[in-house]
Nucleic acid binder design. Sequence first.
DNA 1: CTGAAAGCGCTAACAT
DNA 2: ATGTTAGCGCTTTCAG
Lengths: 335, 335
Amino acid sequence: MATIYDVAQRAEVSAATVSRVLNGHASVDPQLAERVRAAVEELGYRPNALARNLRRSRTSLWGVIISDVGNPFFTALVRGVEDVAQSSRYSVVLCNSDEDPAKEADYVTVALAEQMAGVILSPSGAAEGVRKLLDAETPVVVIDREVPGVSVDSVLVDNEHGSAEATAHLLAGGYQAIACITGPAGISTADRRLRGYRQALTEAGRAHDETLVRHSDFRERGGYEAMASLLEAGSPPDAVFVANNLMAVGALECLVARGVAVPNQMGIVGFDDLPWADLVRPALTTVGQPTYELGRTAAQLLAERIADPGKEPATVVLKTELHVRGTSRRDALAS
Amino acid sequence: MATIYDVAQRAEVSAATVSRVLNGHASVDPQLAERVRAAVEELGYRPNALARNLRRSRTSLWGVIISDVGNPFFTALVRGVEDVAQSSRYSVVLCNSDEDPAKEADYVTVALAEQMAGVILSPSGAAEGVRKLLDAETPVVVIDREVPGVSVDSVLVDNEHGSAEATAHLLAGGYQAIACITGPAGISTADRRLRGYRQALTEAGRAHDETLVRHSDFRERGGYEAMASLLEAGSPPDAVFVANNLMAVGALECLVARGVAVPNQMGIVGFDDLPWADLVRPALTTVGQPTYELGRTAAQLLAERIADPGKEPATVVLKTELHVRGTSRRDALAS
DNA sequence: CTGAAAGCGCTAACAT
DNA sequence: ATGTTAGCGCTTTCAG
């Protein structure tokens, strides 16, 4: 591998000049610059990023640590991040913490050790990861999930409102006993979506029946099992609000497997859309999130934070939108 | 940020000893080692990976460059890679080339510049990326798609066989005019799947009707449009083999939108499964791929290549499995 | 405008 | 078993 000195030698200039030409940092005699460029070309020289990074003590990499690559919500979001990153000349490296705080911690360590220019993180529970990044003065933006007690740039959606709207929609549809399958307690999206559900019940003057609440793991399997457990309860619900897309899929699968008719015997609304939701029969009613926008916004915040590390942390809350489809509307003829 | 010298000073040893303790490369007096560990702890010392990387001229990162993060096939595959990587103490960074050779080239450049320990790549067309990596002697494994004329570790599935089986299945179901929607010409999966389709027709003694073949882009939208174009053809098909999952979704959506009854008016088989395929109505018949295994195998090959750079490149071909579901079986009553 | 030289933080000979 | 020392390849003062 050719080094900057090989280039310098060939162009008959100093390494410093080569560096200046390559980085455009200072003005160089056009003739010399031309010689340098020619030498670079001839040698197929590619700067060694490791050396450059060490010297500058930063990289041009953004780490995006998401909690589940298998969830289209997160991959859609990554698209938004990528588009902004690319226009700012950063490369995005994606890390999958798989909802596992230990893996998250590992990737935070990697981000720190590699001195990534910034990190976008959807925390899998503990605040520890964010705090470590903040302590190291690494620009960081939290996405999807809040980290209580930590002052950090954040991009969220209005979870309570979305959930309340979903629940109210089920109530308006005449469903009587509405259950909720939410995520792990302590994860802000899980907690807030549960709260929105409760708010809607309260506002409608309904009692909360805590036997109709399940905490699961935001995964398909977990949603299936939670649904099964609801069906086996003493007095099963006639509708369910499910706090994420994957669990909603699981719940639907469970209902199909048990032969429970949707939406007539059981209404269901999920939080966050599914790809090809239109092909699922009956089509799933969802609380839609602006996934791509979430990613874009987070990336913009990160870019701003990098440009001005001293600025006040901002929290952006984007709106959700209820998409009424087939799983929440009883047929006119049904009881 | 504390450096190795701060630790050395605090533990009253040399930097070399600290390094040895941290890397376990040579034996050190347990007492000293203990002092070092204590100092590390007290200072919250974290080795600077950039310096280490520069010194060792390699990182402990694996780059996985996939052609579409939005495709569950690729994200499932990443899972397999991650599990192996983790057990080998590598971190996985994911890069999304988005089927764009230019982005792929960028990420290859990043991988090279960052001197990643190895790269797993699903090439988006040109052989250029692989070749660059190979030239730089970066361990690389190609996944999903072959790169003709290049000797490189590869993990593939038996595309011809899977496609032929799918097509034969449609023929056996009594479909007469079977179309094919495949990917971009020049991408090995697209070409081979088309070839498998043709083989099956030939073996069944059917003529090839080239007006029933469409090349699209492996995306949902593309599948939709290709299907629309087939429907608008002079003599539309009564079945279609679609060469990937996303395009199959698009094709199905088109059929739903146009009110074409599946499977009675039109049979359809896709290549590669969909998540929650069971919820899609009618359930999509697919050629299933062992996605997780593909990832695992690629990762293992990469680990072996890193361990022994001189070994002969291997090509592993995994088997597909036809999953017959609802979209390829006409009801008994239908004509 | 250009070159010489120092040094980012770490590891691996080499010496003791 | 431990310490001393010399760089890895680059950028960036500082002189000229």
